[in-house]
Simulated scan of single mutants.
Amino acid sequence: MNTGLLTIDTHTHVLPPGWPDLQARYGYGGWVQLAEHGPGCAHMLKDGKLFREVQSNLWDPDRRLAECHDSGVHVQVLSTVPIMFSYWAKPTDALDLSGLLNDHVASLVAAHPQRFVGLGTVPMQDADLAIRELERCMQELGLAGIEIGTHVNGMNLDHPDLFPVFEAARDLGAAVFVHPWEMLGRDRMSKYWLPWLVGMPAETSLSICSMIFGGVFERLPGLRVLFAHGGGAFPATLGRIEHGFRVRPDLVAVDNERNPRDYVGRFYVDSLVHDPDMLRFMIRLLGAERIALGSDYPFPLGETVPGEMIARMDDLSAETRARLLAGTALEWLGLDAARFRA
């Protein structure tokens, strides 16, 4: 795919080619290791059990850049794989691991500043430590923001303990990328890959509703948040959410009295919905200025050729296509297109 337009993929994952034995480093289990088992292939192992088969495009920048060239992607926004969040761990250990991951992302950005933008990860289970690492990401490492989960050990994103992190992100001008993980209802979704197919969209909608109804967007109007996977189930269920607000404000409007539809336009989503008609609906609902290309590279549930669906939608205006491919991403990241010009 080559549209001739600047193309920025906001949703890509990366890991270092290796890291220390974390169980030995921290003294307890639950950690992920990367074990290569053949040319260009590796297993992600959790306590020695297979979590995911991965290829070298997860850690090899040369292969990643070659695939970007082939698909017409000029810039990737790099973030860790969500299983690495480690919110369950001791906060100081999660901080240490965050530092390892963030230093790696920063090294890739420094080596290829016109091709990569970096997002860090922070130990959200401890707001003070999370803010410390967020400040390091923004002020020392030159990253554009952070990636976080849709909840933190069961605390939804409206929880008071998390608000200081969002406040710091606003003050630092950090972009925030919300990616679902540890999906609700997993005990009922043991088959059919349902945690990824059903749980993730529900998790993302839950996180959006929590930030709306909890007043996070109301209290922090300058906070720039992008939700993965097209906002999950939220766009398709906004009518139901608004109706619930109207008919049972005693249950819904307990922390914020504003209509949830008023917050359409106050946050961003990526374009990863796999369906042109759904993307058209989202453009009507949210506006192209709130939707940014995201592919979930390099994983199979993502878009195989990033931006291909947008490029094939010949009913989109040139202005809309340019906005989806790069304009919205630049605004969310707080960056200028001039950074990426040779």
Rank of each mutant, 00 (worst) to 15 (best):
E331D: 15
E140N: 14
R323Q: 15
R312G: 15
A337V: 11
G118F: 12
S107A: 14
L108P: 02
L194N: 09
V77R: 08
A342S: 14
G307N: 06
Q55G: 15
H151R: 01
P300M: 12
P17C: 11
T237W: 05
D262T: 13
V252Y: 13
V152E: 08
E135C: 10
G18S: 14
T3N: 09
F85V: 10
P221R: 08
F166Y: 08
Y192D: 15
T7F: 04
L301Q: 09
L78T: 04
A326I: 00
M282D: 07
D126I: 01
V14Y: 03
A329K: 03
L272G: 03
H104C: 09
E303G: 05
S79T: 02
V216D: 07
L324V: 04
D128M: 13
A236Y: 03
I8H: 06
F51K: 06
Y192G: 09
E242S: 13
E135S: 11
M124H: 06
W181F: 11
M211I: 02
L141D: 08
G40T: 04
G48V: 05
T237Y: 04
G38V: 07
G30W: 02
D255K: 13
E242R: 12
G99D: 11
L45Y: 01
E36G: 07
H243C: 11
S205L: 09
N259V: 07
V216I: 15
A326P: 00
S79M: 09
G48M: 08
D70E: 12
C137Y: 05
H13G: 05
D9M: 12
T92M: 01
P201A: 06
V152Y: 06
W31S: 10
V264Y: 06
G48E: 09
I208F: 04
G72W: 12
G294F: 09
A106D: 08
G214L: 13
G99I: 07
S79D: 10
H179S: 11
T10R: 12
H13I: 03
F116W: 05
M1T: 12
D128Q: 15
G27Y: 13
H13Y: 08
G40V: 04
E308P: 07
P20N: 02
E303M: 12
H11C: 09
R321E: 14
P82E: 12
G173V: 07
P164V: 04
G334I: 01
G214S: 11
R248H: 15
M44C: 01
G38Y: 08
F166T: 00
A236D: 01
V109Y: 11
M282E: 11
G287Y: 05
Y297P: 08
I83V: 15
G327H: 05
A89R: 07
E319A: 15
T12V: 13
P260L: 11
D262Q: 14
A111H: 10
V75C: 14
S98R: 02
A130E: 03
I283M: 01
A174Q: 06
I241R: 01
L65P: 02
Q139R: 15
R323V: 08
R224N: 06
P260E: 13
N153L: 12
W193M: 10
I83P: 03
L5P: 00
L162V: 07
D47P: 04
V152I: 13
G334T: 01
E303P: 05
M282C: 06
M211G: 02
G222D: 15
W19R: 03
G287C: 08
E303Y: 01
S295E: 14
A253W: 02
L5Y: 05
L335H: 03
P221K: 10
F299Q: 13
A94N: 03
K49P: 00
I310D: 10
T204G: 08
Y268K: 06
T121H: 13
